[in-house]
Design a protein around this nucleic acid. Structure first.
Lengths: 259, 259
DNA sequence: ACGCCTTAGTCAATGGTGTTGACAAAAGTG
DNA sequence: CACTTTTGTCAACACCATTGACTAAGGCGT
């Protein structure tokens, strides 16, 4: 019940109430992994390198984490923990959600290698649960009943998670590949034959210089506006609990949670 | 200039106007890769396995693709080509965009392993260029000048690409990991202590059963509605070229392409 | 039709990866 | 003090991408 920071299978199983000399702890391992990921690429996270970084035999890690998957989940949760470190939800549910989503992306881009390893995963560990709780609380304050809150929670979180994850994945590409991809907009697309690709030719000068962050913020605010508009329908008319600026979108169906 | 389907570095360089007996062609290799990816996991794509699948020595592939990156880009473009195979843009620019984004996600989820390998990449190959041309043409028809068309192009495509890519990535997790993550919503989150996580406890019954496709379609339509509203401002007042149902969002700044 | 040269495939080898099992030292407990 | 549990080490396995040397075989100029 409530697995802690990583109970390995190959030994530890320290009896309750027993503390042994630290030596190597899950915390130190996870910290080492983050350092390693930040200074090296995502392929920097190999058992051999972690061992070298901590001055320890690589296989010693198996004493604390059953396999690499468990190690990755622990690193992922540490990342979420840092995101929440100096964060306090405000009374404004919309601002709370926006701030969290902005932080999520910032943290992913700051630690892209760790982000890529974990952005599809559910860590089911303390930090993640804390974040989920904050988000659900915000939707509750917005006036949504639980079923709908869950639907919007998924829409918002999956949106940010995937967008930030893709941004992180892009940053982790080997320099050669990234240069190739990046330069493609300036080179290959600029040189596209204007007869076959007239619109590409017309847009070519603008293609390489898109501000990725502005694009993200635009999309994020659009989503939040739409959600805020729905929230207004749930509260007593005229008693919105937060700044709800926008008019409503036409409400496509199929947003209810169940089947 | 305009590299074709994959000019390897380690030999081929067939002199212009010369055709040799096929034997092994880039097309057959790419097809084999897709088959392999579909029937095995994403780690099914190893040179050894491809070689075995095609009845050929693994290292023979280096005659046609310089390295795995080039091979992956070729596979990615083949995927895009299939997406466009039976697709014809309609007069309705909004319907055209929506259909393409829906197709993109469907194709990614149908070939998740191939999708994961490529969803962050720019293939700069024929199929991708064709798709970009169609999308930019749609934005042109909507009335956007090139600079703005590019900004919305990136917002829409990055949104769908990342969302679909994350969905695909999730499908490629090893069954053990996916079961763990999926079950987490039903198990760990259902058992979360109600005093520490009251909102999780309240939402627990609804957490495991979120319809991912409905969520995607909702977010997609919200984005398209917002873009359509902006488009209306560009056309002569009252002369919208497509069904533009929605009212406008409050227009956060910073959407222009350049600095 | 000859010889040559480019191409396309094979083979063996290198250095990297996660993971496992057998072993040894050290800490905690009777 | 013995004994058991824990924790790190060592050697080995199977797999990965990639390289260089070698060989069979087509196309081409003469």
């Amino acid at each position: 019940m409530a697995a802690g920071t990583g109970t390995g299978v190959r030994g530890p199983r320290r009896r309750p109430g027993t503390r042994t000399r630290p030596g190597l702890t899950p915390e130190r391992i996870v910290d080492g992994c983050l350092e390693l990921l930040d200074e090296q690429g995502p392929e920097g996270l190999t058992y051999r390198r972690i061992g070298g970084h901590l001055g320890v035999d690589p296989t010693a890690l198996y004493r604390h984490f059953r396999d690499k998957d468990e190690l990755v989940l622990a690193v992922a949760d540490r990342l979420l923990a840092r995101m929440l470190e100096d964060f306090a939800p405000s009374d404004d549910w919309r601002a709370t959600l926006r701030e969290m989503m902005v932080r999520l992306r910032a943290m992913y881009l700051a630690h892209p290698d760790a982000a890529v390893l974990s952005f599809t995963r559910t860590t089911r560990r303390p930090a993640e649960m804390g974040a989920v709780e904050i988000i659900l609380a915000a939707f509750h304050r917005a006036g949504f009943p639980p079923a709908e809150a869950v639907a919007y929670y998924r829409a918002l979180v999956d949106f940010s998670l995937s967008w930030a994850g893709m941004g992180a994945a892009y940053l982790t590409l080997e320099p050669a590949a990234r240069d190739g991809d990046e330069g493609a907009w300036a080179r290959e697309y600029a040189g596209a034959p204007a007869d076959r690709y007239p619109h590409i030719a017309a847009a070519a000068p603008h293609l390489p210089q898109v501000d990725e962050e502005a694009t993200y913020l635009l999309a994020l605010d659009l989503l939040l506006d739409a959600i805020a508009a729905r929230a207004a329908a749930h509260t007593a008319p005229g008693a919105a609990s937060a700044s709800v600026p926008g008019p409503a979108a036409p409400a496509p169906d199929g947003v209810q949670a169940g089947k």
